[in-house]
């Protein structure tokens, strides 16, 4: 019940439930870049949403399936091939041993998620199995997966043949997370009123590009430069995934899954949690624009997402039980 990395993607790590309760030691929570795709990949194989999945980003990958497995691949910007035959994403797939799995990079997305029934085996560190590359702990030896690494599944599975199960997540229902891929909705944050009036306008009307200097810690943006009303130093203060910081040169950075816990740049906006998967899936070079949203609107969207995921988990369970 294991797989062997033949050619990992540019950034391939094991991710799981964020590591909570250690931020006061400067240890960030981490976890998946696209939490919706990550949770859904787990639900499709009957797992809890936070079990260990493989996150593959930016480029194509090849994996040799060594034993029978029930897997699912989700995410944006990839196609799934098993022994060179195309299979759909967002659907559970039975795979026979000695199958070559390929996730081929296409357009319109950055991260793919590969889940297995029972989850992947990973090192637990401080209550979570997610990789912390800064402390070099959790996941697979605290690091990015490399060629020839063997990753094991937690449970055995027996597949009669390689093939998709006859049900999947409705692509329509996923549109609530991924439609309008360039519109990123934000709430005001702690230092939003530091922005000059014109900069506040530009923030919600200008077009920003995702820079090549983007990674799991943060997405740097380029575009119109913003400025504050008066130059002030900010003493270091907590930041969180989705925090939009204004750098001294006038550019913006949005903190992502592996962000540090504190920062010293003005926090001028906060990307709503419901739009973080969409932003995570933006490739360097892609254009985005921001839209201000009130706190209560963000709360409603948060609630909608939570309800949708809870219902999806139940219906996947039901479908998998019917198969038995």
């Amino acid at each position: 019940m294991s797989i062997k990395m033949i050619k990992p993607a540019m950034i391939t790590t094991l991710v799981a439930d964020p590591r909570k309760g250690y931020r006061r030691w400067g240890i960030g929570a981490g976890g998946a870049m696209d939490t919706v795709a990550m949770k859904v990949s787990n639900f499709l194989v009957g797992n809890e949403g936070d079990q260990v999945v493989m996150e593959l980003g930016y480029s194509s990958s090849q994996i040799l399936i060594l034993h029978d497995l029930l897997i699912s691949a989700t995410g944006k910007g990839f196609e799934l091939y098993l022994n060179n035959k195309l299979f759909p994403l967002w659907r559970p797939v039975k795979v026979k041993a000695n199958t070559l799995l390929r996730l081929a990079k296409t357009t319109g997305g950055t991260w793919a998620y590969l889940a297995v029934q029972g989850g992947w085996k990973a090192e637990e560190w401080l209550g979570s199995c997610t990789t912390n590359m800064s402390a070099k702990r959790g996941g697979y030896q605290g690091r990015i997966l490399q060629t020839n690494d063997v990753v094991e599944a937690e449970t055995n599975y027996s597949a009669d043949e390689t093939g998709s199960l006859p049900w999947s997540v409705s692509v329509m229902s996923l549109n609530q997370f991924y439609s309008l891929p360039n519109e990123i909705r934000c709430m005001p944050s702690i230092e939003t009123d530091w922005l000059s009036e014109s900069s506040r306008q530009i923030f919600s009307s200008g077009e920003f590009g995702v820079s090549l200097q983007s990674n799991r810690m943060g997405y740097r943006l380029y575009g119109p430069l913003l400025s504050v009303k008066e130059k002030r130093e900010l003493v270091s203060s907590p930041v969180e995934v989705g925090t939009v910081q204004l750098l001294p040169d006038g550019n913006l950075v949005v903190l992502m899954a592996d962000s540090q816990t504190t920062g010293g740049y003005p926090r001028i906006a906060s990307v709503i949690q419901a739009d973080l998967p969409k932003l995570a899936q933006c490739l360097p070079g892609e254009k985005i624009y921001f839209k201000w949203l009130s706190f209560s609107e963000a709360e409603n969207l948060w609630h909608d997402r939570d309800t949708y995921l809870a219902e999806l988990k139940q219906s996947c369970r039901l479908q998998l039980n019917l198969m038995r």
């Binding site: 702690i190 969180e240 925090t243």
Partner: peptide, 17 residues
């Protein structure tokens, strides 16, 4: 007292050491 995101509240006393 303000929100850092939907599940984080920040209580700020000042901006100095």
């Amino acid at each position: 007292i303000s929100f850092l995101n939907e599940e984080v509240v920040l209580i700020s006393f000042a901006n100095k050491i």
